[in-house]
Design a binder for these strands. Structure first.
Lengths: 345, 345
DNA sequence: CTGAAAGCGCTTACAG
DNA sequence: CTGAAAGCGCTTACAG
């Protein structure tokens, strides 16, 4: 395994020698962990620059028993929500010079969750972020030691001590209320199969109907992979003449529903109002431009890291852990042209 | 910094003691780096299981000067292509028990590229994968030491010694040919601003026109963020009556173009055929269902890791590096309803 | 086949 | 403020 590293990179000893100090002094300089004489500071700085020295994060991690890194555990790694959240976590982590490790989970392979978690933790990260939009994420929580800083993203309130959730339920409620405000007598709902959390769009929809005393028709649940099911839902709804407004669980579903509605001769928004969720980039281009609810995944990721870092920092400083809390990241409704006021004949 | 780790996890010494052998023997057992007596094998295996021992990847990395991990450098971390490719890399890496680190690059902040690369390499990964769809990726290559195994994903042929590219150009050529086969006299093109590579959809489009001797009208280049530009392109094209077929650089663009075309009274596909690229999931739901070209990003990611691993393995075995090569991952046309045969009046 | 020793590159008590 | 020493948890020549 002896690799010919060529001229290997400089190590702390080289810096120390060049600066005429000991390695521990360089270490203290780097970590700000003790006061260093002014002249030595200068010499060390120069030596570092001259050598192009970079501390080995691996050696540091071995010594500290902990790496400056976060692991994120997430199912659906290629979903927009996941990757946008990752991006936020990474950006915030980078500012603290933390590295990001991604370990994907697989809903279809729950048996591997434990092993994947172990793998992710084998690097001894300073903390973990778990996206708890689904069962795999929830399961992952079981395998993470209680003493490791964790932040849960998404999920139900109370699933984690430290949690950042998007306003799923609030958003669902808002969109439904909006339709009700437009005088629709009630709002039908085509839902994606949701995880077992209560912070869901569907619950928000129900909240609004209950609050207004509107009729609650069981939601039609469609697969999030086979969009044809949404089209079929649209057809079914289109055949009922009590359907004037539909809240779709996401934008793809909304599109499918609109398509199905049209197939059976109902126009959107003239005959039926349809709103989506997620505000995907194709929404504004749709005909009609799709009204939707925009979530800020990037922001969620950034907040998740910051919340994690607070815990890590406190631990490293020997301070008390920060107060556990749930942060709700609000989204924003984007009103466009796919819904309109209900006008009875 | 002394953390109360509670009961710390078992280390190799604990296993050795319990099995009645030395630590190096356990190490050799774990790595298959020497023959071990049958009875000791058994005892070691039992001790490992009993203790729930897991080797410290950090200690191992320090000793080996290299971590069992890959870094991927990529701009546009939340783009579907990026995240799907990441997923492929991660899946293939996991099989080899390699960890994945993600470092995002930022086109808008080229100055930070060097620092980001250094950060990503600070962990001493066994290799790096660079997504070279844009300038940031290309720049990143400059900062990665030549002796580190690298695989370039995307980009021009020949940018890297080891490269996996999708059939961008081939795909563009195919789609254009398809339209020409439908008797359109020529095909107009609305392109996204492309990176400085030659393996582009636009070049494929040009290839096809040249091959058939069709008229080449300069492509309209639109931003990949502001979809309104695509709509505007659609309007402009719609006003010319020599426009009967449009190859859009991707599906969002295609949708925008269709919208613009409609605004000026041209129907798709009756008056103008429009095809997209990428085969996003909303394509089939569009009216008309969008004809597009589907790429296999996941597969690209998997191949990228495998190609990287070959290099890593050879290096570790002290063997010759594998032959440099470029693998082209083919996509697949998805013919739907947005294009049709040209019928002159 | 296997053990004692040294080393990977840091950090942190312990003295001074 | 600063250095010598020991340790983090592995791996790898070196002997045997």
């Amino acid at each position: 395994m002896a690799r010919s590293t060529g001229h290997s990179r400089p190590v702390i000893k080289d810096v120390a020698r060049l600066a005429g100090v000991s390695a521990p002094t360089v270490s203290r300089y780097l970590n700000g962990t003790a006061r260093i004489a002014e002249d030595k500071r200068g010499r060390i700085a120069k030596a570092i620059k001259q050598l192009g020295y970079e501390p080995s994060v691996v050696a540091r991690a071995l010594s500290n028993r902990e790496m400056d890194s976060v692991v994120v555990f997430a199912a659906n790694p290629s979903a927009f929500s996941t990757s946008a959240t990752n991006h936020g976590v990474e950006a915030a982590a980078r500012r603290r010079r933390f590295l990001l490790n991604i370990v994907s989970l697989d809903e279809a392979d729950m048996d591997s969750v434990e092993q994947r978690v172990r793998m992710g933790l084998s690097i001894r990260p300073a903390g973990a972020v778990v996206y708890e939009y689904d069962r795999a994420g929830i399961r992952a929580l079981d395998y993470i030691p209680k003493d490791l800083p964790i932040v849960v993203v998404g999920g139900s309130f109370g699933d984690g001590d430290y949690q950042v959730v998007n306003a799923e339920r609030e958003g669902g409620r808002w969109m439904t209320m909006h339709l009700l405000d437009l005088r629709h007598e009630t709002v039908f709902h085509v839902a994606r199969a949701a995880g077992p959390t209560d912070n869901t769009r569907t619950n928000g929809w129900r909240d609004a109907l209950e609050e207004r005393g509107a009729a609650i028709h069981e939601p039609i649940v469609v697969s999030s992979t086979d969009l044809e099911e949404a089209v079929e839902a649209g057809r079914r709804l289109g055949k009922r003449d009590d359907v004037t407004a539909v809240f779709a669980g996401n934008d793809e579903t909304a599109i499918g529903v609109i398509k199905g509605l049209r197939e059976v001769g109902r126009q959107v928004p003239d005959d039926v109002s349809v709103v989506g969720f997620d505000d995907q980039n194709f929404g504004p281009l749709w005909s009609p431009a799709l009204t939707s609810y925009s979530q800020n995944f990037r922001e969620m990721g950034e907040r998740a890291f910051r919340m994690l870092y607070e815990q890590v920092k406190a631990r490293r400083d020997g301070a008390d852990a920060p107060q556990p809390r749930v942060e709700v990241v609000e989204g924003q409704p984007r009103l466009r042209d796919s819904e309109t006021e209900y006008v009875p004949w």
